[in-house]
Design a protein around this nucleic acid. Sequence first.
DNA 1: TACAAAATCCAAAACGTTTCGGATTTTGTA
DNA 2: TACAAAATCCGAAACGTTTTGGATTTTGTA
Lengths: 344, 344
Amino acid sequence: MATLKDLGEYLDLSVTQVSRALNGHSDVNEKTRLRVQQAAKKLNYSPNIAARNLVSGRSGVMGLVSRVPVGEASDNYLDVIVGLSAQFAKRNKQFIIHIIDKNEDEIEAYRKLVNSGAIDGFVIVEAIINDPRIAFLQEKSFPFVVHGRTPNENNFPYFDIDNYGVAYSLTEHLIKLGHKHIALINGLEGSCYSAARLKGYQAALAAGRLPFYPHLIRSGGMYESLGIVSTVQLLTHTEIKPTAIIAGNILIARGVYKALDALKLDIPQHISVVAHDDVLPRFRASAFYPALTVTRSALESSWGPLAEYLCGTIEGVPLKKLQQVAPFEFMTRASTAAVNNIKI
Amino acid sequence: MATLKDLGEYLDLSVTQVSRALNGHSDVNEKTRLRVQQAAKKLNYSPNIAARNLVSGRSGVMGLVSRVPVGEASDNYLDVIVGLSAQFAKRNKQFIIHIIDKNEDEIEAYRKLVNSGAIDGFVIVEAIINDPRIAFLQEKSFPFVVHGRTPNENNFPYFDIDNYGVAYSLTEHLIKLGHKHIALINGLEGSCYSAARLKGYQAALAAGRLPFYPHLIRSGGMYESLGIVSTVQLLTHTEIKPTAIIAGNILIARGVYKALDALKLDIPQHISVVAHDDVLPRFRASAFYPALTVTRSALESSWGPLAEYLCGTIEGVPLKKLQQVAPFEFMTRASTAAVNNIKI
DNA sequence: TACAAAATCCAAAACGTTTCGGATTTTGTA
DNA sequence: TACAAAATCCGAAACGTTTTGGATTTTGTA
């Protein structure tokens, strides 16, 4: 493996100049730079990462800490890993996942990794309210980026979608169709995005001068099973039955469809259904009949910004450039209709 | 972050001795070693990995190269990643996955990674006959370990299960029950394990003095869909209909069960079914009715040896200690019966 | 006690890169 | 041409570790 020294000897240049030429510094003659670049290619030079890391004091490794994903939770976990991995690779960073045991303390795992110096920064997914991971890393002033954001001040890099807007739009859409009992099958209680969606939902209700029924809110892991269970529960409630259901994602929506089918209720004649579509490759909204009305925002498009922002943080890019709330589209399709008064 | 130099000054020792004390060299007084270790803990010392890598000439990173997993293929891919990641973490190695694009050349990706010096060794999964990855890495004499092994000479580290034996046992079991038309729904053609299983199947047929019907062999990605399609095809063949089916794994078996149900054929009254069970956490053999007769060998138990063997290769452990063919269990359950003569 | 052997220690070099501070050369201007 | 400014270059230090080759101290034996 050729080194800078080899190149220097070959070109009769100092190691310094070779290094600076390759790294695009300004104080090197363009002709020289060209010669160096050609020589580098010819001698198949590739910088020694360990040496570079040693002087930079960084490791070039980005990490994601998570527990072993089990059951339904693992369904889209792979997409996260693959997506982030590809994006970091593009930026010449390594990306590792650190799996922690069931009964291992999460913060302790972060502490170890931070102390080891093996990792330059973390990606935090599934942020929760008052997230201890964020608190810990902020206290250590260690670089990280968050997928999502908190209801509090967010003085850290993040990429998020407009969850408030998503819920507001879906609710508003249903209200305009005359629905007064609108159920929300939300994500895990305590998660930031669920909180944001609940707020959006409540705001739309308030704007439509509709009362808020806590009973119409369901929460849990965003999987098919939650959709099934919640739908059945909502529709067996004796007093307030929803005439419309907002599903937190496509998996939940699938559960809702299955349950409604089992309950012999038609969409949208008996019940309207809407959802948010993360455009998960393996769970397509197009598979729904009747076609599902959704807000749409591809989860896949978050990996690029997340990687970018984390690298940016480490390189000292100002915070304002490392925060983004991505928009969403509204796709009106066939799963919603004006409310009717069929007793169900 | 404390360095060796800090420790040396604190203890009034040379950097050399501190290093040797911590690394367990013999020429350091036990009392000194103790002092050093205590000081290291007290000053929260943790070795700088970049510096260590620089002098060792290694990166401490193990890699897995793969294409973006799509569709059914992604189902157990996560288990591979998580399993290997955890095992390497246990050995203080980093583990990264390198995702390559649809139209990117695989060997070229390996070449780049090898040249970059960013990676110490590779894990190769899904080995195929005359695998170009193995050929490339062997030619470069670059460390790697293979999940599986080839039909040729295997002068490299590997961990495999006894695929020949699996197929032989399953086939023999069915032959003993009087079956003469035994179908094999195998993995991808060209893959090493499929080839081994085919050989085991044929050997058992030969031992039972039964003819080999190529029509009874099906191949493909080992997913439910293959099981469904193959079963229907096998049973709509006009001449030779199998009275028993060997499914390559649990997913295929699930497809077989579904297809047989759809075809209104009973297990084992009309058809016997056996399978190999990799003990995938999300696809349990216990979910089958009637209970499925299987050979069993947990895929999960391969990640440890694979990580161990790859680390061993790099450290120069002799090859004999880096090769293993794991055994399997035979579990006779309710999905097999003596052949009968019901015309189907 | 004397001397060899064993035990314990250390200074310096090496890994390959980046960067600091300054040196040298070229260019521009009067 | 003379001199300042700009452009281009370089030596040396630094990052933190391991290892080499030898120095020093302690122990064992006669």
